[in-house]
């Protein structure tokens, strides 16, 4: 099971995570040997400059973002990264004057660990925000589906087709593109498979959605016209015996497509938010 849930996070954290582990092992092996540590002032300064840059970029991201959660969480994470950087500076300072200092080495390890944890928290915060953006696009599609159930007349259907071509199609294309892209980013095979399956379902159901509304509206329209043109009781007889079945079937068909699409979109939103394989397995089990 992969440790990191996206390839980007994995590529950024995995190498340094391994190096931190190696540093810990070496420290444990040579804890009592009194090894001399080289002057780490320069590499520590480079870390500090990189952290300063991240703090600037992070605050800039917060100021331009409309995501309240990101704006709230990001500054706290930046403080953690800054504190880790300060700890590394202190460690380097201590080791410069006392190259054998065990405490200096412990501070170095702690600083490296905190950097790793801080960057991990930062990447997760940022990633969750990116996921929320995709979720919003999915929610737009869901909102459009809610309108579909209200279509009763040919005029409303014509309006919907006009609006759907104008609004729904681009949103669906965008959603499909973003979910596809996200799928390639995920490290968990099960997450990828579930997302792909649900997205394919939505793509398959989209053309059926328009046709199912079309059939429903046409059936209903035919029924209404009969009421207008012939005797009420005769019309009722035709509707019940001949047309009633068609209308009920068309409603069921329309509702099935809408519900299925809504379920799949809900599933996409749910899977997008998962970060560990356990979540999926647990939910599948439930």
């Amino acid at each position: 099971m992969p440790v990191f849930h996206t390839k980007t996070i994995e590529s950024i954290l995995e190498p340094v995570a391994q190096q931190v582990s190696r540093l810990v092992i070496l420290h444990e092996e040579s804890a009592d040997d009194g090894d001399l540590m080289p002057d780490l002032s320069k590499p520590v300064q480079i870390v500090k400059s990189a952290v300063d840059n991240l703090v600037n970029v992070g605050h800039e991201t917060c100021s331009t973002s409309t995501d309240d959660l990101l704006r709230n969480e990001m500054p706290q994470v930046l403080v953690r990264v800054n504190q880790a950087s300060a700890l590394l500076i202190d460690a380097a300072q201590m080791l410069k004057y006392e190259p054998c200092s065990i405490k200096g080495r412990q501070m170095l390890i702690e600083g490296a660990r905190y950097i790793l944890q801080g960057i991990s928290a930062l990447l997760l915060t940022f990633d969750e925000s990116e996921v929320r953006k995709i979720g919003i696009v999915c929610q737009h599609v869901l909102n459009h589906l809610a309108h579909v159930e209200k279509i009763e007349t040919i005029e409303q259907l014509v309006d919907f087709v006009k609006v759907s071509v104008k609004n729904l199609t681009p949103i669906l294309t965008r959603m499909s593109k973003e979910v596809d892209l996200r799928t390639t980013e995920l490290t968990h095979v099960i997450h990828r498979q579930l997302l792909t399956r649900s997205l394919e379902q939505v793509k398959t159901l989209t053309p059926l959605l328009i046709s199912s509304i079309n059939v429903y509206v046409t059936s209903k329209h035919t029924g209404d016209n009969i009421f207008d043109s012939i005797h009420f009781y005769l019309a009722l007889y035709i509707i019940i015996i001949v047309g009633g079945h068609c209308i009920v079937e068309s409603i069921e068909n329309r509702d099935y497509v809408i519900n299925k699409m809504s379920d799949e979109l809900g599933e996409i939103i749910r899977i997008l938010q998962l970060t560990t394989i356990d979540d999926v397995l647990l939910n599948e089990f439930d």
């Binding site: 070496l26 040997d33 090894d35 480079i46 990189a50 991201t61 170095l108 490296a112 960057i119």
Partner: peptide, 29 residues
């Protein structure tokens, strides 16, 4: 994204720092 690049710079820099610290210890070991 700028933030990912900035995060990568830090892990690269931290990697170089740890490398400097561990290579010295390895030599001694």
């Amino acid at each position: 994204e700028q933030i990912l690049e900035a995060a990568k710079s830090i892990t690269n820099a931290a990697g170089a720092l740890i490398s400097a610290a561990t290579s010295a210890q390895k030599e001694i070991a």
